[in-house]
């Protein structure tokens, strides 16, 4: 009797995992199909935008206008985004085809990327932060003053 209960419990758990895997696979296939269609459309119409980005915009509009319910794509999309780093790996490994470039320019490349990244981050963060603070001051002058302990200008 106990064994039967345990087996049943085990089976339901397996079934739940299998359903989830199947849902992710099916939704991933759906997203893949959308990307493939948008790739075709982008090539056919000579749009200089990658098909996958076009697909992203199309899916956003489909969700916004409730043509596609979120539940149809949610599980697959969350899984794909969580595994994104894994999909980058094969193209990045292509670096082994350029040993001469790494040996000759590796340090200079690293320095350029580091400096440029710091500049991009600094300007983006500073501008976004300044605008947000200004809007907050305008919307809630007293709350802002209380929070920062400063008189707003």
């Amino acid at each position: 009797m106990r064994i039967a209960v345990q087996t049943a419990r085990c089976l339901t758990k397996a079934a739940r995992i299998a359903t989830r895997a199947a849902r992710i696979a099916l939704q991933t296939a759906l997203l893949w199909l959308l990307a493939a269609v948008c790739n075709r459309v982008a090539t056919a119409l000579h749009v200089p935008v990658p098909g996958s980005i076009l697909g992203c915009a199309v899916l956003f509009l489909l969700l916004l206008f409730r043509v596609v319910p979120l539940a149809w794509v949610e599980a697959g999309a969350d899984w794909l985004i969580a595994q994104l780093l894994l999909f980058f790996l094969p193209p990045a490994v292509g670096i082994i085809q350029y040993p001469a470039l790494i040996r000759a320019d590796g340090w200079r490349l690293l320095l350029v990327i580091l400096t440029s990244t710091a500049l991009v981050m600094a300007i983006t963060g500073a501008v976004a932060d300044a605008i947000t603070r200004r809007r907050q001051r305008r919307a809630h002058p007293l709350a802002h003053q209380a929070l920062t302990g400063r008189r707003s200008g």
């Binding site: 893949w32 990307a35 996958s52 949610e74 994104l84 790996l89």
Partner: peptide, 29 residues
């Protein structure tokens, strides 16, 4: 050689396509 590795691994990286489309979900949320 990289092409020999990529002959199989390109299936994995082709998932970058649906993954880019999937960015619509956090954008919508």
């Amino acid at each position: 050689p990289y092409p020999r590795y990529m002959a199989g691994a390109h299936w994995l990286s082709s998932l970058l396509q649906p993954a880019t489309v999937a960015f619509a979900v956090p954008l919508y949320r």
